[in-house]
Design a protein around this nucleic acid. Sequence first.
DNA 1: GCTGCCATGTAAACCGTTACATGATTGG
DNA 2: CCAATCATGTAACGGTTTACATGGCAGC
Lengths: 169, 169
Amino acid sequence: MSLRMALLGLLEVKGPASGYDLAKSFERSLNHVWQAGHTQIYPELVKMDSDGLIAVQSEGARGRKIYAITQEGMDQLRAWLQDRDPAITIRSEIALQAFLLPLLETRQAIDVLERIRHSFAERLSVLECYPDPETKPNFGRFALKLGLAQTRTGLAWAEECLAELRSRL
Amino acid sequence: MSLRMALLGLLEVKGPASGYDLAKSFERSLNHVWQAGHTQIYPELVKMDSDGLIAVQSEGARGRKIYAITQEGMDQLRAWLQDRDPAITIRSEIALQAFLLPLLETRQAIDVLERIRHSFAERLSVLECYPDPETKPNFGRFALKLGLAQTRTGLAWAEECLAELRSRL
DNA sequence: GCTGCCATGTAAACCGTTACATGATTGG
DNA sequence: CCAATCATGTAACGGTTTACATGGCAGC
């Protein structure tokens, strides 16, 4: 359902697009929020079409189909946004490793945390390349602010834990 | 793989347990880090047994099998912790709704955010019932600190966004 | 003896990833 | 003409959820 809503959102905001366009768009703008590759997107578009949420607006060269959102699609998107109580299913490999950390010797635990710290830092630098939501208010800004805040929190947590572990040596 | 490692971790820390015990344990202690129900746990234990990571230590009433972690299991758990670069696959329904928020009228967006704020608040109150990792250092404390910090960040974010939206009315 | 919780499982459907396959177009 | 990238898809596999099914034990 979420993938479907994400695609409807992109089609509504950015206008008609092909599967390929949507896959690129997904990567660029939604990637810090939801992930999906083209192998998942193409079949989903076919289903959404047959469900009447989107329609083929035109067909270009080499079978390129341009989809547009329908009224039904817009309605369902809004209904989902308004009615759906968001699931908070957490499945974080980082948090799982953090949970299991006490099983290791301090030195090894430090190595693991160092890697975790690095992955937060890397992610943060990716998010910071997006236009700053404070200075450039644009579409995904609420989500981007959340992503930035959560990642900074994760980074600070890793540094704090590292400091504690190092003090034990 | 992660489910497997989570189960190995529980078996190592809490000692031998049945599938049912593990499911309960999962719910109580790992729930803010990784989720799994009994329908996923029972078949996984069978596979782990046949892979030699755990072994049936004893059998109790009504087919209750008590599993214990093997040396091989401990080795694989440590190897995973040390070698596995944690995947950061983000699939957050909350962040997706946040992303799509600008599609709604301000008033409706406020309602949605209010619900999101509530779900962060609820989650925070659950996490705060766990023993405080600062005062009671115990097993899952690193993960719990992360969970608390991330949830507080989410709550603050929701409140900030709400204030901004309300100022637009 | 009935109700509720303990305890274990299976099956189908759904979602997501990885690997494979193919051809068209563009730029050098 | 060759390589890179555009563009679209399928298939197999693995992980997750939901629904179904069953029986034991404890307390009222």
